[in-house]
Design a protein around this nucleic acid. Structure first.
Lengths: 211, 211
DNA sequence: CCATTAAAATACCGATCCCTATTAAATTCG
DNA sequence: CGAATTTAATAGGGATCGGTATTTTAATGG
């Protein structure tokens, strides 16, 4: 719609999206408290006043960088969850996709949300609450898919879908932690395979997997 | 052996163990990067030079506080693991004990080790490596118990005990994260009950638990 | 009481924290 | 061109960071 019509004053040196991408990556790798505004301005190639005029504050930038990153990942993952697949298969793909995200070659390890800002100085409590709310939200999305599975008869009527969603949420958080500690993609996926045996009605092999 | 014979100079105002206890609690609640030396000296009621002469540096104090805390918890938990109980029962008690530790009334939430220093400034990489090593070590302890269970015939010979240990490790990390986010004891234990259905050979109820 | 010893308190260090008041540069409009 | 507009860069501010050189206090031994 809008033409790229050149506006009046001095043109911005840094594209907003590029800036958010750089910020997201830094926060992802070093955490909120481990990333300084000097780190951010240096990586973006700008000076402090530019950062503050573009993003408001460090905390605001963190919010925006998180929203930006989540928007990129969430479409694919919610498509997986909301697809025509059976809940069990959708869950499998969903977890595998997260394991891939935790171990991308040229990206920081782990998940930007799952294990972020758990411990924190009290001055950063509001940042912690925000990330916690994102974790809660994604678990509720999974729970909603499980509720649908109950309605559709894929899961027994008495299934405790909330606990089941929090169980897989714990797996997601554990994968992120272990990825931060260096676990490879294959190792995370083996872990998922065990977790999937907890699916109601599934019968385990001997957990020797297919070996 | 040694009598509490009074030594020569000015007596210490702060007991070393009390100091470690205070430090551990602060680091537990706020994390390594979220805890300042000013926080520590204030909580201990001492001045900076006293802290540095007693503990060396912030990083050294963190190490000592972690060692101190782990020594307290580990005896009980390794007793559980090394007891005469079957591996499955020992694992259950072990996980329940950790869930209790994650949700103690007048203590910080979560575990001091499981989800600590995952993301960090690069200047704190050595602290991160140390905590990661502690996580790895505790997973290997669990794996060793599973290996014993294989030898004793409680688990099938082809069981992938490493993956199984890392799976329960992920549960432990997930519980810590969710405790930090406010999950109560009961909620964590429901999560454990789901995780235990992944034990090789176990047959799930419908994951409606006992309801 | 005085010397000795050990620990604590004062006062501060340079560096970095997040952030901003002010000035300079780069563009479009008339 | 000059005026208007928009953004970037310079320079620095107050607070806090982890850490320390120096002095003071509190005990014991003779």
């Amino acid at each position: 719609m809008e033409k790229p019509v050149r506006k009046r004053g001095r043109p911005p040196a840094l594209d907003r999206v590029v800036g958010l991408d750089i910020a997201a990556r830094l926060f992802w790798e070093r955490g909120y408290e481990g990333t300084s505004t000097a780190d951010l301005t240096k990586a973006m190639g700008i000076n402090p006043p530019t950062l503050y005029s573009m993003f408001g504050s460090k905390e605001e930038l963190y919010r925006q960088a998180l929203d930006f990153s989540i928007a990129r990942e969430n479409s694919r993952r919610s498509e997986i969850l909301q697809s025509h697949l059976r809940a069990y298969d959708a869950l499998s793909l969903y977890l595998y996709d997260i394991a891939d995200g935790d171990t991308q070659p040229d990206k920081p390890r782990g998940c930007m949300v799952s294990t972020a800002v758990l411990q924190h100085a009290e001055e950063n409590a509001s940042v912690a609450r925000m990330t916690a709310a994102l974790r809660e939200s994604s678990m509720l999305t999974v729970k909603a898919r499980f509720d649908r599975a109950v309605e559709e008869g894929e899961l027994p009527a008495q299934t405790d879908t909330d606990t089941l969603a929090r169980f897989y949420g714990a797996i997601i958080q554990g994968m992120s932690a272990q990825a931060c500690d260096g676990a490879c993609n294959v190792r995370l996926k083996r872990l998922i395979d065990v977790a999937l045996t907890a699916w109601p009605g599934k019968r385990q092999t001997s957990t020797g997997n297919s070996v």
